[in-house]
Simulated assay, not measured.
Amino acid sequence: MQIKRALISVSNKEGVVEFARQLHEAGVEIISTGGTMKAIKEAGIPVTYVSDVTGFPEIMDGRVKTLNPYIHGGILAVRDNAEHVAQMEKHGIKGIDLVAVNLYPFKETIAKPDVTLAEAIENIDIGGPAMVRASAKNFKFVTIVTNPAKYNEVIAQIKENGSVDDRTRMELAQEAFAHTAAYDTMIQDYLAKQLAK
């Protein structure tokens, strides 16, 4: 799968601007959200705001921004399924070939000594895990990157081949599911501790 379009939305912004720059130089269109988009745009890299893709603004203090068929259809479409492709064309959905997402800093939030339950709850990511899981499920066609340490490996393959090889996509999918599993475990553990008080 040629990487033509990428969605980048990260809490950990380590290396993300350079990653976006190299994607752009490789001819990849970039979609982004909130603070990530701001960082990419300020670096002079062309980027499309997710609301311009969905036709709907970020709402509810950013709780709802990527939970939309223009995003999830673009990620989940099976590209060699004629019905999926026809539905993409019918509804104006463009494929998303690479997703770089890592999640709200729940661990760092609950580590604060005076954190409130309300603050902890606001740092439970919803759209992020949904995109990570969708991308990982569809790793046959989508490259999911949750770990900034993998940016260079992914970029190197894109520069060489315009794509990421099958095994690497599966490895990244496995890492992505481990990422969301650890995240959910941390949340349920925190809530269990609150209930035990």
Score class of each variant (00 low, 15 high):
I30D: 03
I30Q: 02
I31F: 15
S32P: 05
S32A: 14
S32F: 04
S32Q: 06
S32V: 03
G35R: 00
G35F: 05
M37F: 00
A39R: 11
A39I: 07
A39V: 15
I40N: 01
E42W: 02
G44H: 05
I45K: 10
P46N: 01
V47S: 03
T48I: 15
Y49M: 08
Y49K: 13
Y49H: 14
S51R: 02
D52Q: 14
V53H: 03
V53P: 01
V53Y: 01
T54L: 01
G55C: 07
G55Y: 05
F56Y: 13
F56T: 10
E58Y: 01
E58F: 08
I59L: 12
I59Y: 02
I59N: 02
D61P: 02
D61L: 06
L67F: 08
G73E: 12
I75P: 04
L76E: 14
V78F: 08
N81C: 15
A82R: 13
A82I: 12
E83R: 10
E83H: 12
H84F: 04
V85L: 13
V85R: 11
V85I: 15
A86D: 10
Q87M: 15
Q87I: 12
E89I: 08
K90W: 07
K90M: 14
H91W: 15
H91E: 13
G92L: 04
I93A: 00
I93G: 02
K94I: 04
G95Y: 06
G95K: 12
L98P: 06
L98R: 00
V99W: 09
V99K: 07
A100K: 05
A100D: 04
V101P: 06
N102D: 05
Y104K: 10
P105S: 08
F106E: 04
F106T: 09
F106M: 06
F106Q: 12
E108K: 13
E108P: 03
T109C: 13
V115S: 07
A118F: 09
A118R: 12
E119N: 02
E119G: 02
E119C: 03
A120H: 04
I121R: 10
E122Y: 07
N123G: 00
N123E: 09
I124P: 07
I124D: 06
D125T: 05
I126F: 08
G127H: 02
G128N: 05
G128F: 08
A130G: 05
A130D: 07
A130W: 04
V132R: 01
R133D: 03
R133K: 14
R133C: 09
A134R: 11
S135W: 00
S135L: 08
K137Y: 05
K137M: 06
N138L: 05
N138M: 10
F139D: 13
